[in-house]
């Protein structure tokens, strides 16, 4: 028993425990000791307003959890710039919306006034092609970006007996492959190339570790948008399963159609249904 929990009054409203009131008092005394410093006062106002903004978002997004929460509004949490309650909010966002705290964002001194998101996609510019962890369909998409590298072809030749010499040569990408809409046959190829090219329009898939990071604000619209985009990003990878199956079934035909789409903006000889 820490004694820091929030008791509940008859009207259902939370009452601060002795421990929390003590922490609040200590925070106040710490503030009073420096309160005639205008710079510190500005920092205090800024910090309080920022924290209040996050409490409001917490209540809006997780009202039940807020009511039941016993986390302190005053004691600093893991991220020391924020209270335990705000840290709890970050954790809920991480657990139910998108990965906020995973990967590199584990420094307790980190300020999350604006936050970045980790790259989910393979980094074309600085990563080694990882044959063990990338899906075969994703590797297939990489053939257009590693034209001088035979390693990928050697991999497919060994695994699926793909004969590169019997496939059409890879030309410059046809402009039509970047069209927004495609038929049912061409769409999986379009999605694959957009994914590999980092041009899906989805921040989780397009961001790379080598570019200047995009910073996101703490507001409901942004959090909702990133949540939906994260689900869509996972769906992108899930859809690769279908392409993997097609490679397993007939790799030679798959590569022939994929290269045809890249070269001509359509699959195969080009009936309307294929476009």
């Amino acid at each position: 028993m820490t004694g820091l929990g929030l008791a509940t009054a008859e009207n259902g409203k939370a009452i601060s425990s002795f421990g929390d009131r003590l922490i609040r008092s200590l925070e106040y005394l710490r503030f009073k000791a420096r309160s005639h410093n205008a710079i510190y006062a500005c920092e205090t106002v800024s910090r309080v307003v920022s924290e209040q903004h996050k409490y409001r978002l917490y209540i809006e997004m997780f009202p039940k959890e807020w009511e039941q929460s016993t986390r302190s509004l005053y004691r600093a949490g893991h991220f020391r710039a924020y209270s335990e309650r705000t840290n709890e909010f970050f954790q809920f966002v991480n657990d139910t919306c998108f990965p906020l705290l995973e990967y590199w964002q584990d420094d307790p001194e980190l300020e999350l006034e604006r936050f970045t998101i980790p790259a989910m996609n393979f980094d074309l510019c600085c990563e080694e092609v990882d044959f063990a962890h990338l899906r075969d369909s994703y590797l297939a998409g990489l053939i257009f970006y590693f034209l001088e590298d035979d390693e990928i072809w050697n991999y497919f030749s060994a695994k699926y007996a793909v004969d590169k010499e019997s496939l059409p040569p890879i030309k410059t990408a046809h402009a039509n492959i970047w069209k927004e809409k495609h038929g049912a046959k061409a769409k999986p190829f379009s999605d694959l190339i957009r994914l590999v090219d980092h041009s899906t329009g989805n921040p989780w898939l397009d961001v790379t570790n080598c570019q200047y990071p995009e910073f996101f604000e703490w507001d409901k619209e942004t959090v909702d948008w990133l949540t939906e985009a994260y689900q869509a990003a996972n769906l992108y990878f899930k859809n690769l399963e279908q392409l993997d199956k097609r490679i397993e079934e007939d790799a030679q035909t798959f590569f022939s159609e994929l290269i045809s789409f890249w070269n001509n903006g359509k699959v195969g000889s080009g009936g309307k249904a294929n476009r």
Binding site: E27, V45, V48, S83
Partner: peptide
Amino acid sequence: INPAIILAERLMRRDAAQLL
């Protein structure tokens, strides 16, 4: 007096559970 000092005093006396 810098108005931020006065406001900071007010905010620090306030219960954080009562949202602004």
